[in-house]
Nucleic acid binder design. Sequence first.
DNA 1: GGGAAATAGTTTCCGCGTAAACTATTTTCT
DNA 2: AGAAAATAGTTTACGCGGAAACTATTTCCC
Lengths: 157, 157
Amino acid sequence: MTQTAAAIDDDRIELGEMAGSLGFLLRIAQVQVFEEFYEALSAHDMKPGEFTVLWVIHLNPGLRQGTIARALHIKPAHMTKLVARLVAAGYVSRITPTDDRRSVRLMLTSSGKAFVQRNRDELINFHKAERSRLDDDEFEQFAVLLRKFTGITEARP
Amino acid sequence: MTQTAAAIDDDRIELGEMAGSLGFLLRIAQVQVFEEFYEALSAHDMKPGEFTVLWVIHLNPGLRQGTIARALHIKPAHMTKLVARLVAAGYVSRITPTDDRRSVRLMLTSSGKAFVQRNRDELINFHKAERSRLDDDEFEQFAVLLRKFTGITEARP
DNA sequence: GGGAAATAGTTTCCGCGTAAACTATTTTCT
DNA sequence: AGAAAATAGTTTACGCGGAAACTATTTCCC
């Protein structure tokens, strides 16, 4: 019997083995991070996925739209719309190269560069140790394990 | 200049400091876990959030719907629909207690109990070390850090 | 060279999850 | 007691993200 005391009194919830489930824990963690991100960024009217794409274009100008989508686990259908928003916002320009007219290569506009420059610290590193329940060492270890778990190394293998 | 080589050759993406962003890493990790979960569970026609709720009801029968929602970071509006699906599937019954007729308390039906019993291992512990890139120690350490990061201890504080 | 297959991206349509407004009930305050 | 405020959950309307089908272009291969 895993069952715990009656629990009809509220706000005392037994999670049991669920507290050992990575799927569950990751979902909660992600929601929390997302909420913080939103709080910090809603002023800029930009969503996490959008800034991530902006950032990757910043570091890899001229990459094909689909390549970025694959790396960030964004589905093509969504990528089309996401890029359209960034273009509409004036941050990104799409270039169809002559050697493969099916594809689209992405660049930052000067406005996009300025935005990334202006917000890089706030948006990328706002998850510093001091703002979380982890100390510096734990924070770093956490990031290491996340990278290993996801298969992300410093540069894509 | 953080910028890396031209990168017009595809499939070699520079993530830069993004690889140190918890928000980014958590998103990728969550997508991967979600995909595995789906693969394993689409046969049962059940989504992660739904099973989580089923599980929590299993461990805490008679809890109020809103209490569960808060603990699992599910918004009330969504909770209503999610519970409706579980009721429609015959797994959950809703009880309006006489002492507070605004509230709804949730119980598993016998069918719901059977479902949880039948699928608990597959659905909760399918993320064992052998299936991930982490070894046993790393896996456990990862879970510990996730719990600390999210503020989830064995029993809700 | 020319049709078949593959590739890049887009469009259409749909479900999940949310915010905001709403209903019903209970609690608080005077 | 009775009005005002708080609480529980629902309904409505909407945006994000995805699957499937589609268009355009390029590559394969006979």
